[in-house]
């Protein structure tokens, strides 16, 4: 029940990451190693690689007996999967209704200005990627920012600078 959940950094050495991915898959019995493992496998892969480059998608496809197109189709359907490398810190503005009516729009505008990037973008120094979520169930604390899984509550544009400074 640790408070700030730290995301493991993307594996530096791809071969090791591939090995770990294989180990994850090998953990399941062969009759389960089919399409139904696709989303868990992609989640694991993204955890290991930071994003889902084509070689990783093909690897997962081969391991689960799927076509490359199917894997790509799934990877591009869900918000959580990134095909491009992300920044060191991922900022998600909550755009759920309660956050929206409590000022998330202004917060997003301020973040765009501050970082000079749009939703889906990454700063040139790879420090931040900017994304959005549609409610993480912390509406009571609206408007919120989620940075690397930590929730910042009652955020106003004025508080932004201090919050961002916590993420070098």
């Amino acid at each position: 029940m640790a408070e700030p959940v730290t995301v493991p950094p993307p594996a530096a050495e791809p071969a090791a990451a591939f090995r770990e991915l294989d180990a994850f898959l090998a953990h399941f019995p062969a009759e389960l190693r089919t399409r139904t493992l696709l989303i868990p496998a992609l989640q694991k892969a993204q955890e290991l690689f930071g994003h889902l480059p084509p070689a990783v998608q093909r690897h997962v496809a081969a391991a689960l007996g799927l076509t490359a197109g199917e894997v790509y189709g799934v990877a591009t359907f869900y918000h959580y999967f990134h095909l491009q490398p992300q920044g060191r810190h991922v900022i998600n503005v909550c755009l759920g209704t309660p956050c929206y009516v409590k000022g998330a729009r202004g917060l997003l505008a301020a973040l765009r200005r501050e970082l000079g990037i749009d939703l889906g973008g990454t700063t040139p120094d790879r420090r931040f990627s900017l994304g959005c979520q549609r409610c993480v169930g912390a509406c009571v604390l609206a408007p919120i920012l989620i940075i690397d899984q930590k929730v910042h509550s009652y955020v106003t544009p004025k508080k932004l600078a201090a919050i961002l400074a916590q993420y070098p």
Partner: peptide, 13 residues
């Protein structure tokens, strides 16, 4: 209370 909101409000510390 170790619900998500209370945790976000600093329950761990």
């Amino acid at each position: 209370c170790a619900g998500g909101c209370c945790l976000s409000s600093g329950m761990a510390s």
